[in-house]
C-alpha cells in the first residue's frame, strides 16, 4: 500500500543536481556529517540545547542585575576574617584554566608592570619598585567558585597604594588586569581600594612560587578565586567594562564574597 506520507508528485531528479553545490558547502561545514542529532541542532542554533539564546540572555541579564546587587552589598569598610599564620596551607592550592604542566614561568628581572588608562604617571614599575613600597600581610581564606577553600598567607603592596602613587583616577569604575598567561580580568574600583586587596609578592614569607603567579599576582579577600589573576603584567584604570576570561564564558563578573 502506498504511504500516506508520500508526495503525490515526485520532483524531477534534476533538482538534486541543482542543489549539489549547496549540499557540498553544507557538508564542508560539517553540518550534514553531524546528522540529525541534538548535537547538530545545538550547532545550528549556535548554542546548547538546554541553553537557547533567549534563556541565555535572560540568565545573563539577571547575572548583571546580581552584579549591581553585589556591588550594593559590598561594604568597603568590612574586613574579611583573618586567621593565625599557623593555619596557612603550604604550598597553596594550584588552579588555572590549564594544568600546572602548562605554566610558563616569568622572569622577574625583566618583568615590568605596565600602566594604562586613567593614570597620570604611566611609567612602568619594576619588581624592585614594588618591593620598595609599603607592604601589607594578610592570612585569609581563598574561596573558589567551585566550592573549595583554603587559608593562605599573602604579602604585598596594597593595590590602593599603587593606584595612589601613580595618580590613578580613583573615581573610575574599573581596574583591569592583563597577565602573562592570557587571563584578562577586571574588578570594581571599590574592591580595588579595599585594604585587603594586594598585589601579592610573597606567600607565607617566601617569594611567590612560579605556579602561583611569580612575580606579582592579585589577591583579594573579598572576591572569589577566579577574580585573582596571576603573573600580572599590566593594569588599566578605565570606565569601559573590561570583562574577563571566565566572564566571557558566562561566569558572573562581580563575584564578591
Amino acid at each position: 500500500m502506498r504511504s500516506r506520507f508520500r508526495p503525490d508528485t515526485i520532483p524531477d531528479a534534476s533538482v538534486l543536481e541543482s542543489h549539489k553545490p549547496l549540499i557540498r558547502s553544507l557538508e564542508r561545514r560539517g553540518l550534514i556529517r553531524g546528522g540529525v542529532s541534538l548535537g547538530a541542532l545545538a550547532m545550528l542554533t549556535g548554542c546548547d540545547v538546554d541553553r537557547p539564546e533567549s534563556v541565555e540572555s535572560a540568565l545573563l541579564a539577571i547575572s548583571r542585575f546580581n552584579d549591581t546587587v553585589q556591588a550594593w552589598l559590598f561594604d568597603p569598610n568590612r574586613l574579611a576574617p583573618t586567621y593565625p599564620e599557623s593555619m596557612i596551607l603550604r604550598p597553596p592550592k594550584f588552579n588555572a584554566y590549564y594544568d600546572v604542566t602548562e605554566v610558563k614561568p616569568v622572569d622577574g628581572a625583566s618583568w615590568r608592570l605596565e600602566l594604562a588608562g586613567l593614570v597620570a604617571d604611566k611609567r612602568p614599575w619594576t619588581l624592585a619598585d614594588l618591593h620598595a613600597l609599603p607592604q601589607r600581610a594578610m592570612v585569609i581564606k581563598h574561596i573558589c567558585v567551585e566550592g573549595w577553600s583554603y587559608i593562605g598567607g599573602w604579602t604585598g603592596v596594597p593595590l590602593r597604594t599603587l593606584l595612589e602613587r601613580c595618580g590613578a583616577d580613583l573615581r573610575a569604575r574599573y581596574v583591569a588586569f592583563k597577565t602573562a598567561d592570557d587571563y584578562p580580568s577586571s574588578i570594581d574600583m571599590a574592591t580595588a581600594l579595599h585594604p585587603q586587596t594586594l598585589l601579592a609578592l610573597k606567600y607565607g614569607d617566601e617569594t611567590l612560587a612560579d605556579p602561583f603567579g611569580y612575580p606579582v599576582r592579585l589577591r583579594m579577600a573579598t572576591k572569589l578565586g577566579y577574580k585573582n589573576p596571576k603573573w600580572v603584567t599590566a593594569i588599566e584604570v578605565t570606565n569601559t567594562y573590561p570583562g574577563g576570561f571566565w566572564e566571557a564564558k558566562g561566569f558572573p563578573w562581580f563575584a564578591g564574597l
Binding site: R51, A58, L59, L60, I62, K249, G250
Partner: peptide, 14 residues
C-alpha cells in the same frame, strides 16, 4: 541543569 558550572551558577543565581 546547565551544561557546565557557569550556567549552573547562572541558573542558581537567577
Amino acid at each position: 541543569l546547565g551544561d557546565w558550572a557557569a550556567w549552573s551558577l547562572n541558573w542558581h543565581f537567577a
